[in-house]
Structures are given as structure tokens and as C-alpha cells.
Simulated scan of single mutants.
Amino acid sequence: MELEPGTIGFAVVVLAGGRAVRLDGADKASVEHHGRSLLEHAIEACVDAQEVVVVGDPVPTTRPVTFCRESPRYGGPVAALLTGRDALVRAPRSLGVLAVDMPRVTPWTFRRLHEALDGHDGAFLTDGTGRRQLAGVLDVARLDAARPDHESQHGMAIRRLLAGLDIVDVAPVGDEGRDVDTWADVRDLADDR
């Protein structure tokens, strides 16, 4: 299918500006795994995207990305996702969302999510228990149609935003659905070989 002028096929919003309460406020994006920050792992997972927006504080990266912050700060994942969507230079057909604390997500994960998206409004990775994670792909037209007003976005849970959409859950392969929320998770991540 041919794209309209001024549009792109795929863009990703990386959510990297949370409070990390269970990590005592540490900057998750800067946590290292195999000698690279979690942010670099997230950016690497987005290699197929024509544009990447990171919602978080700007830091040097190996790939050009756009940085922005939601207003007010720490508005939660919906506010961050929609702020990132608004920061895109060109409108994508599909929009990926990835929490910075999911270093096991790869480009292959996003390819599988895109395959699952066909005929649906979105596709999201689950963890090993079936709980939906902040790693997914959305049809932008459907996301825009479900978009709440600015005041409602602050503090809104992603599940509430997605409630009216046809979302397919995609089971993880291996540990790709695991996130890093606690210091124990950081320790387990360090044990990965």
C-alpha cells in the first residue's frame, strides 16, 4: 500500500521519563545492561522505525532521536505516549510504544507485533503471565480517534486508553516480555548472559 505524501510507515515513542518509584527514583534509562544503557537497548529495538521520539530528558544517543517531555511532567504513560505522538515530524501509519525498561524487546519483537496488528487496532506484548506490557504497535488513525482530551490524559492508565480498541495480545518469546521495575529486576538483568 502506497503512503500518502508526508507520511511514514512506522514510528516509535519510547517512554523514558517516569518516576521509577520502585527504583528509588533512579533514572531507568541510564541503567546499564551489557555495557549499554536501557535507552540504547530501546533505541536499538526501534531500528525499523523511520522516526523515534523519546519522552524523557535528553541525553546523547548513538542514533538520532527526538526528545520531548509531557506537560505536566510525570503525567503517566498515556500523556507521554500522546506527547510523543505529537512530537513526530511526519504522521506514521503505525505507531510503536516501548517502555525504556524492556531491554529484551528487539526489532524482531516489533516485526511480530506488526504481523499481529493486521486487522486490529493494536497489538501488545504480554509478559509470561499474560499481563499486557508497554511494548506494542497501534494503528495511528484508531489511536487518534480514541484520544482523550488533554486534561484527561494526566494519570490515565494505558489499559483505559486502549479499552475501546481492538487490541490483540502477543505472547512473549523467551524473556522479551519482562520489564525492569525493581532493584531485584536490575540484579536479574545483570545475571542475563
Rank of each mutant, 00 (worst) to 15 (best):
H34L: 14
L38R: 03
L38A: 07
L39A: 09
H41E: 11
A49R: 08
V53S: 05
V53Q: 08
V54L: 08
V54I: 03
V55M: 07
V59P: 01
P60D: 14
T61F: 13
T61K: 05
T62H: 15
R63G: 00
P64R: 08
T66Y: 04
R69V: 05
E70R: 09
Y74S: 06
G75C: 11
G76T: 12
G76C: 01
V78T: 11
A80P: 05
A80F: 09
L81P: 07
L81Y: 08
R93H: 10
R93A: 10
D101R: 05
M102R: 04
V105N: 06
W108V: 12
W108P: 02
R111V: 04
R111A: 13
R111F: 07
R112D: 01
L113E: 04
L113V: 03
E115W: 08
E115S: 13
A116P: 00
L117P: 03
L117D: 07
D118L: 10
D118H: 03
G119M: 07
G119Q: 05
H120N: 10
G122S: 04
L125P: 09
T126E: 01
T126W: 01
G128W: 05
T129S: 15
G130T: 06
R131Y: 08
R132K: 05
R132Y: 02
Q133C: 11
Q133K: 08
L134P: 04
G136H: 08
L138D: 05
V140L: 03
V140W: 06
V140I: 08
V140T: 15
A141D: 14
A141F: 04
R142H: 06
R142L: 08
D144L: 10
A145S: 15
A145I: 13
R147E: 13
R147S: 11
R147K: 12
S152Y: 09
Q153K: 07
Q153D: 10
H154P: 04
G155L: 05
A157C: 10
A157I: 07
I158S: 09
I158Y: 09
L161F: 12
L162T: 13
L162I: 09
A163P: 00
G164W: 14
G164Q: 06
G164P: 02
L165G: 11
L165S: 05
A171Y: 02
P172D: 00
